Amino acid sequence: MTSIRNLALAVPRRGDDVLVFRGHDPARDQTFYRPLGGGIEFGETATQALHRELREELAVELTGVRLLGVLENLFQAFGRAGHEIVFVFACDLADRTLYEHDHVGEILDDAGTPVLWRPLSSFDDTTPLYPAGLSDLLAK
């Protein structure tokens, strides 16, 4: 059964840099980047999901959380179709030392997925930032 997935994504900034993880879609043989965050559970607000996901993925706390916008994303990835409603939040990392290194760590609940700072200007068609429309939203 197909359904629409609701997501909350955190977009901390370090100047022009955004905090993202690096992923790879073997079906398309494409490396891509996406901010951390994840699914909103039933009975949970998007903001609550954002805090929970960042604790689970990187063991970090967020401050200054504010909604930047909402994106609707229809896509093909990993050999299947997807449909997401994505709540995008600007925020700050409570642990200020995480701003000092380009490579922040790895996602805790995944096998070695790197988390790093990347310049917003570095994303393009060959090195995309997902979800679609996020680069435009962040450039405003």
Rank of each mutant, 00 (worst) to 15 (best):
A111V: 12
V88L: 13
D25K: 10
L134I: 00
G39I: 09
L62T: 08
G105H: 04
V115F: 12
R14V: 01
R28G: 00
F89D: 01
Y130H: 10
G64H: 13
G39W: 02
E44G: 06
L129A: 06
G15Y: 11
L71M: 08
T63V: 12
T63F: 04
L67P: 03
L68M: 12
R5C: 11
D109N: 14
I40S: 04
G105W: 05
L54H: 03
L74V: 11
F87Y: 15
A90I: 01
G37K: 05
H24S: 00
C91L: 08
N6Y: 15
F123G: 05
L93E: 03
T126C: 02
T113Y: 05
T127W: 13
E56H: 09
G79V: 04
Q30R: 15
Y130D: 00
F123M: 08
H24F: 15
G69I: 07
R52E: 06
G112T: 07
E72I: 04
F78A: 09
G23V: 02
P131T: 02
Q48H: 11
P26W: 04
V88N: 05
V11F: 13
E53P: 00
R34V: 13
A90Q: 09
F21K: 08
A132L: 03
T31I: 11
L7S: 08
L68N: 06
L7Y: 12
H51C: 08
F32G: 01
Y130T: 03
L67K: 14
F87T: 02
R55C: 01
P131A: 02
L50I: 07
E72F: 11
R28L: 15
Q76K: 07
T113A: 10
Q76I: 05
G82D: 02
R5Y: 09
L50K: 05
T47A: 13
L129C: 09
F89S: 02
Q76N: 09
S3Y: 14
S122I: 06
G38T: 02
G69E: 09
P12H: 10
R13K: 15
A111M: 10
Q30W: 01
D17K: 13
F78D: 11
L50F: 07
P128F: 04
G38S: 03
V65Y: 08
T2D: 13
H24K: 08
L7M: 15
E44S: 06
A94G: 06
D95I: 10
P128G: 05
H83Y: 13
L137F: 06
L120E: 07
D110E: 15
N73F: 10
T126I: 02
R118M: 15
Q30K: 14
T97Y: 02
A139S: 15
G39K: 12
L68Y: 04
E72A: 10
M1L: 12
F21R: 11
E106N: 11
R22I: 05
D136W: 03
E106K: 12
